[in-house]
Design a protein around this nucleic acid. Sequence first.
DNA 1: AAGACTCGCAACCGCCGAGCA
DNA 2: CTGCTCGGCGGTTGCGAGTCT
Length: 323
Amino acid sequence: MGRYPCCKVDEDLKKGPWTSEEDEKLMDFISKNGHTNWQLIPKKAGLNRCGKSCRLRWTNYLRPDIKRGEFSIEEEEIIINLHSLLGNKWSRIAAHLPGRTDNEIKNFYNTHLRKKLLRLGIDPRTHKPISDLNLLINLSHQFTSKHNINHHLMNNNNPLAYALKLQAQVTEIAKIQQLVHSLFTPININNPLSTNFHENFATSSSHVITNNVATNTQFLNSLLVNSCGNIPNLDNSTSCISNSSELSNYQSELNSKVDNFEGLSNNSSKTQVDYNNSLPSLIAPSSPDQANDAHVNQDYDPNTLSQLNHEGIDDSFWNDIFP
DNA sequence: AAGACTCGCAACCGCCGAGCA
DNA sequence: CTGCTCGGCGGTTGCGAGTCT
């Protein structure tokens, strides 16, 4: 099937930003007549616009139920959680955020959340810790050339050695992330859209969450943030998906679980469903196997942490690179 | 002060699937 | 079954505003 333009090319229709007069005409018409056929609306409303352009203007800007203003922390976390499950399915993500449009969420994710995740050493596309060697080589080039600093850290202009060093650091970060993930996983099971860890602590009834675990979790999390917090914004155009088939399998498995949840949330007669394993937290496990392992590893071993602490993260390393 | 650069976001483009004749 | 139309979606672009040099 060929592609058909939504509007005739020779019609010389107006493009670009909408004026307030045009907005008024469109709102006026839709409030009186509704929007059943977008192709007819511009003519009937007296607009020299393509029907598609009218629909976009209405759904993304003029609709009366649109929520304006900054995204809340809760909305941010919902977006990140759902994006880790659904990928770039912006319309499905938007369905869970009343008053927000897919376009708005897409823009917000690409401009703000993407950077936020990168700062935490998380790939915004896969929600996995960044550990791809080629990416690290690329990043090391970007940083040293962009900032024109710290060339001595390139190990005598050997980008591979430098990248290996970066990878070692990132691997340690990933270990800590995995620990944090394993501690959060049993907490975050009852509602995939739940965003508040404290709420989860309070409401989780099917698992015993001790104060000890909470304390250790907070400590680990702060360690993670302190270790990763100095990683700057990256303008990363490269992919670090090393195994796309594994990723797509994982994603489709998650999608079916989300479908289950969406079906459930649309159904008034909710039944208790065990979402065990259905929701990766902000950081997805490196593989489905690890996701399973995470459940087994619910007991926190303080020796593991002290070991990581000694041989692992070196804050001064990141500070040297990104002052 | 001004030109270069970066960033955020509204709007557009092109593809796809559903529905219909 | 086929071809056409429309609405919806995700990716991309372009422009204005802000920041940097």
